[in-house]
Design a protein around this nucleic acid. Structure first.
Lengths: 116, 116
DNA sequence: TTTCTATTTGGCTAAGATACCAAATAGAAA
DNA sequence: TTTCTATTTGGTATCTTAGCCAAATAGAAA
């Protein structure tokens, strides 16, 4: 009989993980994390407001927004000559609750996080 | 009166986002995503089994495990001359449910994800 | 003790991500 | 139409990440 691991990664599951990673990576940057948080709070924001809040070049903010949009996390709408972005995925905030409980765990040193 | 954005990012919120990003980044790689998923399924795995499943160099897997451990997502225990890793944070699986619904949304093109 | 096995660490290279500036675009205002 | 404003896109330099190999470590087996 063969050794323990009965399944290697198939092409199908490989693609599943890649799809997940696209979404997760979109949030794996401080600025983008802020943008998602801010949009969940404010409902919508134009690029110029986000730029002022974040304090980096507007072209940089624009590129961050593109990454979030490609991941399907936000949507945009042009009104006048401003572009407004809004959060497309409210459950992302539940996710942060989970992340926060991980951080809490790390700080307190608890063995298994209860994730309340 | 001043323009719209009343808050720039403070040092404190900046650190909050950095803490989140550490956790999110830990999952932002196909191999690490697989490892987390596999540990949630199997309970625990040694480095050698994970290595066989993933199919990259064992030193690479070891480094991925270090990243997950530093983020507080997994724990390790040495028994005999193997090291076993286990998932420390069960709620991470709820999080994937959220991510999956984003992916679902992206595929179907729905406007606002309901995140069931 | 020496040897073997599992894992980690250091070093290096290749690929990817991020930031800025400058130039292009799109549409509103004049 | 021309001009102005908001945003996006292209280019480039810099930093980070991921991979492999080789060497170090730790402990089990002989």
């Amino acid at each position: 009989m063969e050794a323990v691991p009965e399944h290697e990664i198939t092409m199908k599951t490989q693609r599943k993980y890649e799809a997940r990673v696209l979404v997760v990576k979109a949030m794996a940057h401080t600025t983008r994390m802020f943008i998602v948080d801010e949009l969940s709070r404010a409902g919508e924001r134009c690029v110029c407001d986000l730029t002022e809040m974040v304090g980096v070049d507007i072209s940089t903010v624009s590129k961050h927004l593109t990454i979030l949009k490609n991941a399907g996390l936000i949507d945009d709408e042009k009104r006048g000559n401003q572009v407004f972005y809004r959060l497309k995925v409210p459950c992302i905030m539940d996710f942060f609750r989970c992340v926060e409980s991980v951080i809490e765990c790390n700080a307190t040193g608890c063995k298994t996080c209860s994730c309340k």
